[in-house]
Design a protein around this nucleic acid. Structure first.
Length: 289
DNA sequence: ATAAAACCCCGTCACATGTT
DNA sequence: AACATGTGACGGGGTTTTAT
């Protein structure tokens, strides 16, 4: 239809329940014909008929699917192209986390967005080794920490880290590495099970490192030179264990966020479809009159 | 009842990324 | 550059669901 739908008014921001939601109409002001968040929809008709005002289903405190500057902003270009300008707070990320380049296709009415860096830059030429190529194909998305930071959930994560009983395990580990002739068997209690790492003195031959898991597996590593290596390895494994746990937790949180996001967007989509329907009816009605 | 499938959680490794 | 941390992938083990 030729009519232009323009919304005016101010956004009161997003509800506190959705950490992803953020709306601002700052950029909307400068760009003509940009849809902003409001409750009033002004319908400008192509004819000489007076414009009508209807109540929008999108309430001021509701986040619109059509994002303003702080999220996705839809800009209508003269040729009919649509460019997704930026989306710093979106949970949906490109491989680089933000949109970096724009490519406008010449044909009208095409939706243009990007996937990370364009191939016009130097990153696409250069190292052509298969491994490198494979790696590049599997470019990582930003870390969950980064994403959570962007979402403003970082404090939660930080707090968790802060309340962690500071390197408790590390202390246990080193205490278990005493060189007592009789194995004191300092125990290492993790969340998942009991690990025992003990070093016993064996006279001239040096220490024997004994490692036992809760499955009652035992093996012996001979030689004094391996003590440090073994200890370092055990420490690394311990830390990695914790890291993996934390990483999984963040991943779950992230997925939950995405699922919430989907639910919100689905609702908004429904509302927008309804709104569009209403506006169309109104438009047709006015046209007939 | 039980075997198979599906699901979940965990620990580890390898490698990318971040920090110092 | 060296070291620390984060995360995808893999495989193992336990639990739940499903088909017979």
């Amino acid at each position: 239809m030729d009519g232009m739908v323009e919304e005016n008014g101010t956004s009161s921001g997003a509800g506190p329940t959705d950490p992803l939601a953020s709306a601002s109409s700052s950029a909307a002001a400068s760009a003509p014909h940009v849809v902003a968040v409001t409750s009033i929809v002004q319908l400008t008709l192509p004819t000489q008929a007076p414009s009508a005002q209807v109540q929008s289903v999108i309430q001021p405190n509701q986040q619109s699917v059509i994002q303003t500057a702080s999220n996705i902003q839809s800009v209508q270009l003269p040729k009919g192209n649509v460019i997704l300008v930026s989306k710093p707070n979106s949970v949906i990320h490109t491989t680089q986390g933000t949109l970096q380049t724009l490519q406008i296709k010449p044909e009208p009415n095409t939706l243009v967005s990007t996937q990370g860096q364009s191939c016009s830059d130097d990153s696409c030429s250069g190292d052509e080794s298969p491994k490198r190529k494979y790696r590049e194909m599997l470019t990582r998305r930003p870390s969950y920490r980064k994403i959570l930071n962007d979402l403003g959930g970082a404090e939660i994560a930080e707090n968790r880290m802060g309340t962690k009983p500071g390197n408790e395990n590390e202390v246990s580990l080193s205490s278990s590495l005493s060189f007592a002739p009789v194995i004191p068997a300092g125990a290492l209690q993790t969340e998942s099970g009991l690990h025992t790492l003990a070093v016993s003195g064996t006279g001239a031959g040096g220490a024997i490192v004994q490692y036992a898991t809760n499955q009652d597996e035992h093996f012996y590593v001979p030689g004094p030179m391996l003590e440090d290596q073994t200890r370092k390895r055990e420490l690394r494994l311990l830390k990695n264990r914790e890291a993996a746990r934390e990483c999984r937790r963040k991943k779950k949180e992230y997925i939950k966020c995405l699922e919430n996001r989907v639910a919100v967007l689905e609702n908004q989509n429904k509302a927008l479809i309804e709104e569009l329907k209403t506006l169309k009816e109104l438009y047709c009605q006015q046209k007939v009159e």
